[in-house]
Design a protein around this nucleic acid. Structure first.
Lengths: 161, 161
DNA sequence: AAATAATCGACACTAAGTCTCAACTACTAT
DNA sequence: ATAGTAGTTGAGACTTAGTGTCGATTATTT
């Protein structure tokens, strides 16, 4: 757990430097976020996971902590089409958001780490005189797993029909 | 109002063909959407605009109508970072969503009609084995107006200070 | 160890959106 | 043109994500 430990320390430092207290509730919230690094958790989910660590925490506290972490750019707040906010560790600390692949079948969210939009941002700035600060790019489609599942189902139908 | 008229007829036809009744509430909702083509209205805003045409309509009806229109791909339902659904006429009838420029200062939403992501989608499909059906791309930044405003304010400060 | 400013949890509240159901109406076929 | 009917409507109850309030608590500083 070396990597998590160092990230954990770094985040705690950031919080402290910004003048926030290091309460156990905040530490546990960060802990959960680090442990579920790959997921895109909602506030409710984070709340339940922190509570599951046999600790009490209020939902409002989770929201407040997430707000602070977003402010400090430790996490990103994302809203996909369902309108529910999800949170995403900003490990790379790039100023630009990475992209997401949202599966329409299973709802999974995969990340695309590279930033493919550099050229397009230049185009936007030139053609629309719009000063780009950040972007959100989500592809909607069918993930690898679901596509394979679909293929299997199809051949099942062919065999049985 | 030739263009609006023909769009209006087309939409009504689509509704009818899909087996939906052409109620005055639905017609008025479509009318509002056509009149405010450039805006990105929320359900609440559409509701008020329809009511303003000295007609009664229920909020639930607006939601239901918007759901149907989204289903039939006559409009697109968009959720930006505030989590409120906004609606957007799908005039071009391209299967792919156009892009948006969201100003962080004034909140305006501008459209980018071209689809700049063709190559990137190919990359995603190749590298991630993800079958892309659609995308959502929003640039966050400062629009032309606000940038100019900022410049003016700055020179004011210089003159007065 | 005491002072204190930040933080906490419980719960009331807001707001977007959905559900329910009795009343109504656009369409279809006569 | 009219009646029958399935789809639709509006009012308001409900759900759910998220915010605000406030008295009690606690991490930090001295």
């Amino acid at each position: 757990m070396k990597k998590l430990d160092s990230s954990f320390k770094l985040i705690k430092e950031k919080l402290h430097k910004a003048g926030f207290k290091l309460t156990p509730q905040r530490e546990l919230t960060v802990e959960v976020l680090l442990e579920k690094e790959k997921d895109h958790l909602s506030a409710e989910e984070i709340y339940l996971l922190v509570k599951a660590k046999n600790t009490g925490i209020g939902l409002a506290t989770v929201y407040r902590t997430l707000e602070i972490l977003t402010e400090l750019q430790i996490i990103n707040k994302l809203t996909f089409q369902d309108g529910i906010a999800r949170y995403d560790l900003n490990m790379g600390s790039d100023k630009h958001q990475h992209h997401h692949l949202l599966c329409l079948k299973c709802g999974s969210i995969e990340e695309v780490k590279q930033d493919m939009l550099f050229e397009i941002e230049k185009e936007i700035e030139r053609d629309y005189h719009f000063l780009v600060k950040d972007h959100r790019l989500t592809f909607h489609g069918i993930c690898r797993n679901c596509a394979e599942q679909d293929k299997e189902d199809e051949s099942d139908v062919n065999v049985n029909g």
